[in-house]
Amino acid sequence: MYNKKVLDHFQKPKNMGKLKNPDVVAEVGNMQCGDIMRLYIKVKDDKIKDISFETMGCVAAISTSSMITELAKGKTLAQASKITFQDVVGELGELPPVKMHCADLAVKALRKAIKKYQGNKD
């Protein structure tokens, strides 16, 4: 069902847990499948200095959460906003078709967090 890389991220997720003193916390959810994803980010010099996640969901939801934190870490806010669900899936290798929306949820969470940060700043 899942490839090794997806399972690795599930078994040993990167950047998992709460972040101390985050600049922003953003949460997104998918009513149908019940997944809830929460991202914490810290920004410095317009760059994502630190990021972490908490996700209640299936293997794909946890793996894509882990992957999006890896992809976003160190990027400028503009660069991070451009990360697509294809990027997340591509990095993981593959996802079962019914699980593609998990990658989408991860992207939505990141974009929501960035928007929220930019909104807070203004």
């Binding site: 078994q11 209640m56 969901g57 299936c58 293997v59």
Partner: peptide, 14 residues
């Protein structure tokens, strides 16, 4: 509570 079925099943499977 707070843990999803598929994640539990695949953790057990591992």
């Amino acid at each position: 509570k707070g843990a999803e079925g598929e994640s539990i099943v695949l953790s057990l499977s591992a």
